[in-house]
Design a binder for these strands. Structure first.
Lengths: 308, 308
DNA sequence: CGACACTCCAAATTCTGCTTATGATTCGAC
DNA sequence: GTCGAATCATAAGCAGAATTTGGAGTGTCG
């Protein structure tokens, strides 16, 4: 097996025309080049050079190796260039798995920022609800998972049993305030904030399973069991159901920011309820430049939104 | 610049699926592989692997490098194979520059032997008279030069002034007896040997310039100046001229062996005259397997002919 | 004929890389 | 759940390699 350094030096010797010139070009001393070429000839088993007065001449084997050297150094250079592009964020692919409301808010904004500065980085997006997204991360099907957790719930992070092997890293992005979604004609629709305990007699519309579980829990903490008459994980359906007067619903502010219906309004709820939106990534993937970059953008976007 | 050994190990790790398996396959210990891959990731600037429980998974950069590794190792292997073929005499090209009578005798015989055992070796033949053939050798236009020298003449070897720089090596092949070519009707045509001093009154046909010079010299040593009525370096013409009775000629036995004319005969000459046929090669070229092989074959052919 | 440039040679130093030994971790089996 | 096999990471030690340094010979050019 030839040493790529020897090949490189050999190629330089051939194009420079002398050992000394090659040594100067490569930052070696001349004896180093002499020894490298000697080692190369040894591993080739055939002389490569013939001395011709002041210059040197290639033997048949030398001519052959010179041709191969072009190819070898070319493919080495191509590999180096491609990996360099990945390292310097001129290329890269990041697979994100997020829940629907993040896909509609954080992800597009972060992607827009990303493409502005690093047009070579590609994003692949897939959708999954919190428990599943982390599983996909652990299965290697995505690089970043976005999930939300309700306080008191087991937490999406460690829901995958042990997190020791894969070293799952949790990156808090924002605290998403929960609002109560009311039809505009509702008696509390003009209040600034609504006490949850004032809604014990309402009919409720519940969202995704974990949202529904959270609803039941916070109501239980307030001392009542909500009358859930409808359950759907389609936020648009929830909004329409509320508008139609079927019932009220808890709705994260993140979702409200991209839904709007003339007949519904979101009000802050007392006590303050919220869900934590976090990004998850395998610790080893933090060293992947493109992944780290997307995480930075997500953090920036979340911080900006938190500020509002 | 990637180290080709690292690329090879990386490729083995990818196909074997683990560091340990790659180490076993390559004859390394496991920590050696760990260090090599660490160094490779350092020079790549990007992580290449992600640990997935017992196995490992490639990152995007790792996938890219794995694809390049195929190409790199392929071209390295191709180079090694071609140089190996040259070293093991499965391929090779030898350029020989010889004088006409060698081209008609020694060269074909040696080439026949050569091709029998080493069909991959190619011979390129060019023709030149002794002074010129060595010059071509020094100019790198051929690998082996065949030349003849007459005793007492300056010698073809050092005729190129200094032989220090290029280290010209002289390899004696055979001692070529000179004969005198007589028409069959000549009074001495039946004698076993003819004394040169008996031919003082003959008309002479001279060959190439150096042959002519040799003729003049040997005659002078016998105390007479030959009456040269014709000069040509065409041996066939010489033979015909002798057959036509124009004169007599000195003719090396090597030439006689492939010329034959009913009306002429070659007789040994007294005193014994001969020319030395030698091969010349640059000392460095002795290490080129194909060149050395051809020299061996030439030596063998010459020795066989000498024995006759 | 002298000066410069190039190469080779030999020795010493610095270095990189491999190995051995040890510890931590994970997966499979009982 | 626990034991055992296997894997990887780390540290220390050592050997071999590669480079640099210093010196000499040689050809080339002015």
């Amino acid at each position: 097996m030839f040493d790529s350094r020897h090949i490189k030096t050999f190629h330089e010797v051939v194009s420079a025309g002398s050992y000394s010139a090659a040594a100067r070009a490569l930052g070696y001393t001349q004896p180093a080049v002499t020894q490298q070429m000697k080692a190369l000839e040894r591993s080739a088993g055939v002389p490569l050079f013939t001395r011709a007065g002041r210059g040197l001449r290639l033997t048949e084997a030398g001519e052959a190796l010179a041709r191969h050297a072009e190819v070898i150094l070319g493919s080495l250079s191509a590999a180096q260039q491609q990996l360099g592009a990945l390292a310097r964020l001129r290329a890269g692919r990041v697979r994100i798995c997020a829940f629907p409301s993040a896909n509609a808010t954080l992800i597009p904004e972060a992607t827009a920022r990303l493409l502005a500065d690093h047009p070579g980085v590609r994003v692949e997006l897939m959708e999954a609800e919190p428990p599943e997204s982390v599983h996909r991360l652990l299965r290697g099907e995505c690089d970043i998972a976005l999930a939300f957790t309700y306080p008191g719930s087991p937490g999406a992070a460690v829901s995958g049993a042990e997190n020791g092997p894969e070293e799952l890293v949790e990156i808090p992005l924002l605290e998403d305030q929960l609002t109560v979604l009311l039809p505009v004609g509702h008696p509390y629709a003009r209040r600034h904030a609504v006490r949850l305990s004032d809604l014990t007699e309402e009919r409720w519309i519940a969202g995704c399973p974990r949202c529904r579980a959270n609803l039941l829990q916070v109501c239980a903490e307030e001392g009542f069991a909500p009358d859930v008459v409808f359950t759907t994980d389609d936020n648009l359906a929830v909004q329409s159901l509320v508008a139609a007067g079927v019932g009220v619903a808890l709705m994260p502010a993140l979702v409200l920011s991209f839904l709007s219906h003339r007949k519904v309004t979101g009000r802050l709820v007392e006590p303050h309820l919220r869900r934590r939106v976090c990004a998850y990534v395998l610790r080893e993937h933090l060293r992947v430049p493109a992944t780290a970059l997307v995480l930075d953008e997500l953090r920036a976007v979340a911080a900006a939104r938190q500020g509002c």
